[in-house]
């Protein structure tokens, strides 16, 4: 991870090294987004900063049985709503369901072919039962 992405500040917003637990905020209009894009979908501004995603809530979950060869099976996935953005990510805990609070935690190889480890969505303490 580059230094530029570990703290709030101007970044190349198409930089794939941006950590998965950070989102983008348009410097011009404040619009927020998660998936890298080169300009703001609202104002077309090209300056953005990143911010850390803290606690999200699961909006939908699935357990995928038929997965690519380098992906775990079943692959439990959650669509989570965070402060200003939504994303889909792997779930660390089997017990998670819609409405649970989640945060990014741990270090996992999400696909065998990937070199880097990433956090998965995990239950916020006390909210997984």
């Amino acid at each position: 991870m580059s230094d530029a992405t570990s703290t709030d500040g101007a970044v190349d917003r198409f930089d794939e090294s941006v950590a998965v637990d950070r989102a983008f905020r348009c410097t011009d209009c404040g619009r927020r987004w998660y998936y890298q894009r080169r300009r703001c979908p609202d104002c077309s501004g090209t300056d953005a900063t990143t911010y850390a995603l803290e606690t999200g809530v699961l909006v939908a979950v699935t357990s995928v049985e038929t997965t690519p060869p380098d992906v775990r099976s079943p692959n439990r996935l959650g669509l989570a709503r965070f402060d200003g953005v939504q994303l889909i990510a792997q779930l660390a805990d089997e017990v998670l369901s819609v409405g649970d609070a989640v945060e990014f935690a741990g270090a996992y190889r999400l696909r065998d072919e990937q070199e880097r480890s990433r956090p998965r969505l995990s239950a916020v303490d006390g909210d997984s039962e």
């Binding site: 038929t66 992906v71 996935l77 889909i88 792997q90 990937q114 990433r118």
Partner: peptide, 15 residues
């Protein structure tokens, strides 16, 4: 970013 998570078209369908 979705590919990284192992997402496939049926994964979206399931969600």
């Amino acid at each position: 970013r979705e590919y990284e998570q192992g997402l496939t078209l049926p994964s979206f369908g399931g969600l």
